[in-house]
């Protein structure tokens, strides 16, 4: 986004008249962004700084007299804690698996949507429903789906090995993780598909025709022409979804409440800060979570060399 700041049609006014105009323009520009800037600083930057400060204290809301400066002690406890690393691993796993699966399914969906010539409106409506539905609602729908007494999965897929009418989907780590990931994938694949569709529609038909004339098979066309030309779109989709998946909270809260070791980093932070009133420890976790997300964004951008400006076709 940063790279897109320069308007395409730089003002073409004559240099002589420019200075007055540009002073006014500068002032107007600043005035126009001021409300947004103030709001964003007030609600995120300030509390984040406060979190940074609080994270240096032992401070529990229920025992305020016990507040004491502990330096980086909270960070020390967290970074050597097995629960923290377990939850981080869970979160990373959920992120990697859901994004990978969504990429494949989303791509298939995008191909279908790209080719379809009938019922485009129906298709668009259908695909926007998972996107628009409240995550909590989707989590409930899937929780009931996998419920042992009231779900339809065990009955419908009972013929598959490993599934019977008494399979308890929330009874062990992997089953529970599977259910959580299914709900996440269902809800967010449409978003992925739409971003990929936008990328797909940028590929010129001529190029595909030419490849076909040259005798390329369907697979070759897919891997040699379509995907390389969609690289930017794919990367943007991955970046968005990966950061989003890393923040997973709602589904876990509803479906398992973190039982069976299905807790995510966000969930851990929430529990410390809100349920256990550990403002100091919770703040330290908040700071770490924020830094992790920043690092993740940096890694994805660097690793895949995503050029956001290019991705936007600027």
């Amino acid at each position: 986004m940063t790279a897109t700041t320069i308007p395409r049609d730089q003002t073409k006014a004559a240099p002589a008249a420019a200075s007055d105009r540009s002073v006014a323009e500068n002032r107007l520009g600043q005035k126009l962004v001021a409300p947004a800037l103030i709001l964003m600083v007030l609600v995120t930057a300030y509390p984040m700084l406060q979190a940074l400060y609080l994270s240096l204290f032992r401070y529990r809301l229920t025992t305020p007299d016990d507040k004491a400066f502990v330096g980086l002690g909270n960070y020390g406890v967290i970074l050597t804690d097995s629960l923290f690393w377990k939850d981080t691993l869970n979160t990373v796993l959920i992120m990697l698996i859901t994004v990978a699966v969504e990429l494949v399914i989303g791509f298939a969906f995008a191909m279908v949507m790209h080719r379809i010539i009938f019922a485009r409106g129906v298709m668009r409506t259908a695909i926007l429903i998972p996107y628009g539905i409240i995550t909590v609602v989707s989590a409930f729908a899937w929780q009931f789906t996998f419920s042992i007494n009231n779900g339809w999965v065990n009955g419908t897929f009972g013929w598959l090995p490993g599934i019977s009418s008494t399979t308890n989907w929330y009874g062990d780590h992997w089953h529970a993780m599977f259910a959580i990931m299914v709900s996440e994938i269902w809800k967010t694949t449409p978003f992925m598909a739409l971003l990929l569709l936008a990328g797909l529609s940028q590929i010129s038909e001529d190029m595909l025709e030419a490849a076909k004339v040259d005798g390329a098979t369907a697979a070759q066309r897919l891997f040699k022409v379509i995907i390389p030309n969609m690289r930017a779109a794919i990367m943007v989709a991955v970046l968005f979804r990966a950061l989003d998946a890393f923040r997973i909270f709602d589904n876990i809260f509803i479906m398992t409440k973190g039982a069976q070791n299905t807790e995510s980093s966000s969930f851990l932070t929430y529990r410390q800060a809100i349920e256990q009133f550990q403002l100091g420890m919770g703040s330290a976790l908040s700071v770490l979570l924020f830094l992790t997300v920043l690092l993740l964004a940096y890694l994805i951008v660097k690793l895949f060399r995503v050029d956001l400006a290019q991705a936007r076709g600027e």
Binding site: I148, N149, T166, T167, N168, Y170, G171, D172, A259, Q260
Partner: peptide, 14 residues
């Protein structure tokens, strides 16, 4: 019961 690890009062009742 198959849902032992998620059973609360209601599930136990069922």
């Amino acid at each position: 019961p198959p849902d032992l690890s998620i059973a609360q009062e209601g599930q136990a009742g069922s």
